[in-house]
């Protein structure tokens, strides 16, 4: 039914993603399709990595860890963004397209008033891509 599941991950807050990660792994095993973990980083140093290459390595390690833990097929893909506070949605949309994912599983934040001004990432993805989007509370 699906070809590939994309899971956007924020490595700085990986602990908040647990439910979404388990859901994605279960779906991956159920449909026997790979999960691609997508991370977005900046060219400038961040709390996670000194540069994009180091970030990509950490993301790959995260993917390997998920594969060992849940026993599913995992891939990773890291993107750099000049201004991730603003460009996150666009980068994730590009990732859906480039990884040819047709199901996105992502953790949600608690909805609040600012969603009226800055729409949620999940909402934007569902609106602008062809993939199915499962937002995990």
């Amino acid at each position: 039914m699906y070809n590939r599941i994309m899971v956007p991950v924020d490595l700085a807050h990986a602990n908040r993603l647990e439910k979404a990660l388990i859901t994605a792994a279960d779906l991956s095993k159920h449909y026997k399709i790979p999960v691609v973990y997508v991370g977005v980083t900046t060219a400038t140093p961040s709390s996670l990595a000194h540069n994009p290459k180091e970030y990509a390595e950490k993301l790959a390690e995260f993917g390997r860890d998920q594969a060992t833990r849940h026993g599913h097929q995992a891939e990773t893909k890291a993107y750099t963004s000049h201004d991730p506070s603003i460009d996150l949605d666009d980068t994730l949309l590009k990732a859906v397209h480039e990884t040819r994912s047709d199901l996105v599983v992502m953790a949600s934040h608690i909805p609040n008033v600012t969603d009226w001004i800055w729409p949620s990432n999940g909402g934007t993805l569902a609106t602008h891509s062809d993939a199915s989007v499962l937002v995990v509370r």
């Binding site: 790979p34 990509a56 790959a60 993917g63 891939e75 990773t76 893909k77 993107y79 750099t80 480039e98």
Partner: peptide, 9 residues
Amino acid sequence: MNDDTDSQA
């Protein structure tokens, strides 16, 4: 496990 970091990313 396929670490796929090609030139587009």
